[in-house]
Each structure stands twice: as structure tokens, then as C-alpha cells.
């Protein structure tokens, strides 16, 4: 294990240090006193595990291609931007556009997320990315979604507090969204179609919820006992008839 103290270091230096450490073969890197430094894990390959103590800045795990990042705290915007492979676990909240155009790997967030989470997520062959969120999500959840899996668990809501904002799944043309409980129709984008959960869905949910529960110390059965709403796009070609 290698410990890096991020106190007072600019992100450019910090990230160079993390990359150097990983390149030297170290696969357990702990970064302490992180206070908003951006781009942690950006473009990194390999299979190191980076544990971040503190609050990492925007674009954490952007373009990441393999490593695991565990955040002991909240994360900010654009976690996993265009991520290709790897794993992110956030013991807290995360901001807007988590998993923008993400193509592979998984992101687990214990609490809530901001706007436009999972926007333009994709999938390709064996690459099926997933984001599991313990709390609630803001507007435009899964916007333009083209592939992958979004799971929203809505734990810790106040009575009558909505689990997701407006325009959920708007422009969706691939992938699947699972939301625990019911979602008001008016919150859905017009490209998102509500479907019943089948056995295959149960399996997918079971697999990801178990991992989620493992990471954050929940009881998976408890979470899975509730009903889920499944959203898939009406078609792969949302704008097929618009142009001639």
C-alpha cells in the first residue's frame, strides 16, 4: 500500500503522482486529504485500487479504463465521464452528469445524485456499463441513454419525496432504467416506455443490488423486496420520422 497526501497539491501534480505510483506496480493507493482536486483516475488503465479520502473534484474517473476508485466521502460532477472500464464506489453523494457517455464498468453511489445522470450511456457487445444509486436523482435522469443499466433505489426519501426529477429517460434510445417503486407518468420523457419486470430483470437487479449492499452495508433482500419500475425506449430510432 502506498499513501499519498494530497494536502495543498495541485491536481496536475497529484494525478502525475498517482499515475507514477500505479505505473511502478503499486496496486493499492490511498490518497488522503483530497480537497476538490480534479481528474483523479482520468485516462488511467490497469487494475490499481485508489482510495480517496476527502472530496474529489470534477471528472473523477473520466476516460478511465480499468482501475477501481473508492471515495470515502462525496464526489462532485461528471464522475466516470466517458469511462470505458473499471469500478467506482462513492460513500456519499455525487453531482451532475455522472457516467456521461460511459461505455463500460460500474459506478455505485450510496446516496443521491444530481442532474443528467447516465446521460448518453452506451453499450457495445460485452461492454454494458451500470450505475447504481442508493438515493434519489435529479432531472433528465438517463437522458439520450443509448445503452447500459441505471438503477435508482430511492432509499432514505422523506414521505412523498419524488425519487427522480422530471424528463426521466427523455431522448432514450437504448439501455434500461430500473427505479424502485412507482414513478409519476408526468416525470417521464416521451421516449421512455414503462414495462413490467421479468425474470431477466430480476437477475440483473439481484446482481447489482447485492454488490451495492455489500459495498455499503445494506441488506440486499430488503432492497429487492420492493417493486421496481422498468423503463426502456419505445424504439432505437426516436427521431426516425422527423427528417426527410
Amino acid at each position: 500500500m502506498k499513501v499519498i497526501d494530497a494536502n495543498g497539491i495541485h491536481y496536475q501534480q497529484l494525478n502525475a503522482l498517482i499515475k507514477q505510483t500505479a505505473a511502478s506496480g503499486e496496486d493499492d493507493i490511498r490518497v488522503l486529504n483530497v480537497r476538490g482536486q480534479r481528474y483523479i483516475g482520468d485516462g488511467m488503465r490497469g487494475d490499481a485500487t485508489i482510495t480517496v479520502e476527502g472530496v474529489p473534484g470534477n471528472d473523477m474517473a473520466a476516460f478511465m479504463d480499468g482501475p477501481t476508485i473508492v471515495v470515502k466521502g462525496n464526489a462532485q460532477d461528471a464522475v466516470g465521464n466517458t469511462m470505458n472500464e473499471g469500478k467506482v464506489m462513492i460513500h456519499g453523494h455525487a453531482g451532475d452528469t455522472v457516467g456521461y457517455a460511459m461505455r463500460g464498468g460500474t459506478i455505485f453511489i450510496r446516496d443521491d445524485v444530481g442532474y443528467r445522470v447516465g446521460i448518453h450511456m452506451k453499450e457495445y457487445e460485452d461492454k454494458v456499463p451500470a450505475i447504481v444509486i442508493g438515493g434519489k436523482a435529479g432531472d433528465f435522469f438517463g437522458e439520450y441513454m443509448a445503452g447500459g443499466i441505471l438503477i435508482l433505489l430511492g432509499m432514505g426519501l422523506y414521505p412523498d419525496e419524488p425519487i427522480v426529477g422530471n424528463y426521466c429517460g427523455t431522448g432514450m434510445h437504448g439501455g434500461v432504467i430500473y427505479i424502485r417503486g412507482q414513478v409519476d407518468k408526468y416525470r417521464l420523457g416521451k421516449e421512455a416506455d414503462v414495462r413490467p419486470i421479468d425474470d431477466k430483470d430480476q437477475k440483473v437487479l439481484g446482481m447489482y443490488v447485492e454488490q451495492f449492499a455489500d459495498h455499503f452495508g445494506y441488506d440486499a433482500e430488503d432492497i429487492l423486496s420492493g417493486t421496481f419500475t422498468k423503463l426502456i425506449p419505445f424504439g432505437k430510432r426516436p427521431y426516425g420520422k422527423l427528417y426527410s
Binding site: 461528471a78 437522458e143 439520450y144 432505437k236
Partner: peptide
Amino acid sequence: VSATRMIPEGSDAISPAPHHD
């Protein structure tokens, strides 16, 4: 094209007008 863009064959490739980040 599917292999190069890394999207399934036959699906629309939509680039949103803005970068939402």
C-alpha cells in the same frame, strides 16, 4: 461503423447539440 463507434449495429448515433457537461 458499429465497431468503430462502439454502438450496436443499426442504432441511431445521436450526438446531442450541446455537450451536457
